[in-house]
Computed example of a mutant assay.
Amino acid sequence: MKKTFIITMMLVLTGQAFAKDKKSKSKKMETSEHYTFQLNENVIREKVTFKNRYGIMLSGDLYLPKNGRNGQLSALAICGPFGAVKEQSSGLYANQMAARGFVALAFDPSYTGESSGEPRNLASPEINTEDFSAAIDYLGLQKNVDRNKIGIIGICGFGGFALNATAIDKRVKAVATTSLYDMTRVMSKGYNDAVTPEQRTKTLEALSMQRWTDAENGKPAEGSRNLPETLKGDEPQFVKEYFDYYRTPRGFHANSLNSTGAWLVTNPISFMNMPILTYVKEISPRPMLLIAGENAHSRYFSEDIFKLANEPKELIIIPNAVHVDLYDKVDVIPFDKLDTFFRTHLK
């Protein structure tokens, strides 16, 4: 029973459940003005676009402090969670940090939300890492940004991509993550690394055969919805917590895969053999801040990276918090700590 639960949740997380949800559509999302938070009265939000190294046009929201438009300010590139869009958590973080005096860019990753890229509803550890570097490109060209004072915040699965981008892109001066997920680890090994070699082999066999099906059909198949329309009540607690954010007015957004959509069935392929945090030690001597909830099912990701990373590094465990509390609860997310961290190290 335990093994069945582990592999089932792995399939739900990665979009490998092979029964297609007919309501899900693989298409570029429409522009939306719906945000899951209120814009701070001291912040200006501007829609922007920029290309990554693969020629994919990324859509972002640039948050600017009203009293700092003409100075050279520190800047932050912000993305996540995995399967979310900029009108959700990343925008909330950008809004909060801009109110504290930073230029903050929240963006939709490639193939997701208002960003371009075909097919839709696809993720890639390489391309999503590149998305952060493309955001750094954009920020460094802004007249009101000091390009020597740029940092990254990665939320959930984009915490892993944020660390990977920082390791390889030496322009990033400091990095922080909240509710970190290493998507390559969880897709290839399952939660708490509990997937057996036999289970992994079966998953890879199924994904390999799916490629022929996709080739025959001329298009990639969609998996089942990331989250159901309703809960039955017997779901694991962390699934209920995801539902409480993505499927309720608290965090629902029509462009978000976790609210309304599904990953492609073959989405996990590029994650299975690519551990993105192999070179996490190379972030040093630049500082790293890892923030996780005490009761978060994902807490072990942050703790394990903290053990692996070189100094300077800091791990903060938020008492009583669960994974999704760090998505949007402004009284739980330690924004003052993030402010101090980046103000100290982006200089």
Rank of each mutant, 00 (worst) to 15 (best):
F5Y: 09
M9F: 07
M9Y: 11
L11C: 10
L13F: 07
K25S: 11
M29F: 11
E33V: 03
H34Y: 09
T36M: 08
V43S: 05
R45M: 12
K47W: 01
M57Y: 01
S59T: 13
L62P: 04
Y63L: 13
G71F: 05
C79M: 14
A84E: 08
A84Q: 06
A84I: 06
S89W: 00
N95Q: 13
A98N: 03
G101I: 07
P109D: 07
S110F: 01
E114K: 05
P125Y: 10
N128A: 04
T129Y: 02
L141D: 13
N144Q: 15
D146M: 12
I152Q: 03
I152G: 01
G154I: 06
G160C: 08
D169L: 06
K170E: 11
V175E: 05
Y181D: 03
M183Q: 13
K189S: 14
T196K: 09
T196Q: 07
P197F: 07
A206F: 09
A206N: 10
M209V: 00
W212M: 06
G218N: 08
G218M: 05
E222I: 12
N226Q: 06
G233L: 03
G233W: 02
P236L: 08
Y245W: 11
T248V: 07
H253R: 01
N255G: 12
N255L: 14
A262Q: 05
L264I: 09
L264C: 02
N267W: 02
N267I: 04
P268I: 08
F271S: 01
S284E: 05
E294N: 13
Y300M: 12
Y300G: 06
A309Q: 05
N310K: 13
E311F: 12
I317D: 10
H323W: 12
D325I: 10
D328Q: 13
K337Q: 14
D339H: 15
F342K: 04
